[in-house]
Design a protein around this nucleic acid. Structure first.
Lengths: 207, 207, 207, 207
DNA sequence: TATGAATGAGCTTTCATTCAT
DNA sequence: TATGAATGAAAGCTCATTCAT
């Protein structure tokens, strides 16, 4: 029974299946057989494309970095008001992270990083460091434009990424069936307000 | 060959060992035998105090809730300026979460929540919901004192807890050996500044 | 908390508990702790009276032999009509074997004999061989009285003991909750009829 | 290192091994690894064909029912003299039950029924109930042919199956190495005589 | 005599990975 | 390329037995 997809599409097809199964079962709980089944292949065939289960996880992270992080980088334009850029960046990221298909990979990495230091390092370099540089660039820009005050970059990283992280966990891991919470757009706007207000240079009361 | 014979101390002794091993190996990767060895007991003895490996994880969360969350709740005093309270709360939490002994439990729960819905629910109720109520109470207070503007509580939860979460991940999971980052006190003060600035009612520029 | 029973009663007290637990759980499924609990003792105390779990089973068989088999032997009176004796013997045995307290021991021995050849031998000598001798004596008597025909003693053993065995299994192991079956008295009389008819020397039709 | 690669034969191959090992060690005492080794497979391979150790036992009973019970049913011919049929049925069963390969399954079931109510029910339905119906049919036939007297069917079940059961236990569980007993043919004929005599309608002396 | 904490061997079952076809 | 049967190393949990008290 020939599949319609062509062989060169196999790795992506497998990663899609792996993402879905890892997301539902966690990495340790995912069985290679389930991934194979979902990809429409046999267990053995998986090993023609990936050396091991670990390699699939790494492949997933690589694809994530190439996708979402790349798109985020594309949003930064040095000629635009940095506060406008930051607002649209936050909005974009909240919508992205609210999509279980996107949040699955970082979620799994967080879950497994302890056990796979190599994976943690790979994620730090390809995702976190790129995000850090992106934010730094944006804040530098805003400061030079006079629209942001100059805060510690490490604090900034935590204050900008943290709310996204929290949102991800609250909506995908610790989701309360009783209380689904506001839609991503509302959350995104609210978070952006808080951050921009926090960065507002014209606010003297508390500083 | 048990080192001591003080059965009352056993559960805590075992939880300490479990925390350490889970933290190093992840939950799935941790062997009960290793936990036992680290606790100075035999494998079988563990099961005299905990029904299963899962139960140890649950016990860990319970201890966390009774400890850190309880302490955090004790910091809120209705007669104090809410912004002062919030600042000390953030400072306290950043110091706590910077301690690997404390961060281990939430880290493990985040990692395993997908696979153990019951654990996720338990954590949501005993830790997250308590934290949410605590923050809500504090913001209500600040708003009535006129020191905070009134923001969406769901946004607030994400903006206050998120940076702590991000700090935890950056310092324990994705720690960059090249760049250890500023000390917790600096990070705590910076995060508190951002949040308080974000909540500042006298800031009209961006609202 | 002193128990009311005196120490010398302990072994019997333990055997009673063992009988009950073995009967419910099978030998392998019975936990020494459960036996102890039912006997009102601690696990450790059991080992003051019995060397091992196996020894309890052996003790049970010994007690059975001394009890039921002894009583059956008492029913044979050389001066009575052998057919009357056989009828009362069958009736007695069916009533006995219908009592789960009595059937438990042979049931367990049947179950475990394969694994404990020593137990099987012990049972064969103390119960089966005694039963065989008893029946042989009774048939010899009946033949000499002219009330029984002379059948092979091995066939006889199977024809007399077999129905009791089948009754035991049907009422205690393979009991059909939908159909509890007739009372022991009816079954006993019916089996005795079949056996006596089978032994009837005045029946020429089929011989 | 598999000896052959004929997957269709595996289940039977495994059941043969299981029969042998259960028979020697009892169900609880049998290790799956031993069964695998005897079947010439690895431990893991067993689980490709049977869900659990329990399932193997159930498979064994099913095979027994399909085999011996089916064959016995084939012996009943409504156009033949019921007494002749009964005699050949008893003869057939005694020969069967004297074969350790056949007696092993019922022996194991008797041993384990207490602990596995589901297995007991399965055996009751697939073996005992079928046997009961078979005998009932045969006796109804004999009564209508005027060759049997009409006895209680529950008594009958016990009187016909019991001797077979006793024979099985005496020759496989409680076998006396000193005294192997008569060959199955002699035992079978003797038991059939006793039963047919017991059912003889022309015997008034004791009724 | 009695307790019950502690031990540790042993078991079933799972699953990533291999390999003959 | 693809299959899926087979392997075998783990690991959680149980429980008979021991022993300090």
């Amino acid at each position: 029974m020939p599949r319609t997809r062509r062989p060169e599409a196999r790795p992506d097809q497998i990663l899609d299946a792996a993402l879905a199964v890892f997301s539902e079962q966690g990495f340790a709980g995912a069985r290679v057989e389930d991934i194979a089944k979902r990809a429409g292949l046999s267990k053995g065939a998986i090993y023609l494309y990936f050396e091991s289960k670990d390699a699939m996880l790494k492949g997933l992270v690589r694809r994530l970095a190439d996708g979402v992080v790349g798109a985020a980088e594309g949003l930064v334009d040095p000629n635009r008001d940095a506060s406008v850029t930051l607002r649209s960046l936050v909005a974009f990221m909240v919508v992205q992270i609210s999509n279980p298909q996107v949040s699955a990979a970082p979620r799994i990495v967080i879950a497994e990083a302890q056990r796979f230091p190599e994976l943690a390092a790979f994620y730090r370099e390809t995702v976190i460091a790129r995000g850090h540089r992106l934010l730094t660039r944006l804040i530098d820009l805003g400061v030079s434009q006079g629209v942001f005050r100059d805060v510690d970059r490490e604090v900034l990283l935590r204050t900008c990424i943290g709310p996204l992280l929290a949102h991800m966990l609250l909506t995908s891991v610790f989701i309360d069936p009783q209380n689904p919470g506001p839609p991503p757009e509302v959350i995104g706007a609210g978070i952006a307000d808080m951050i921009l207000n926090g960065l507002n240079p014209n606010n003297g009361a508390l500083l």
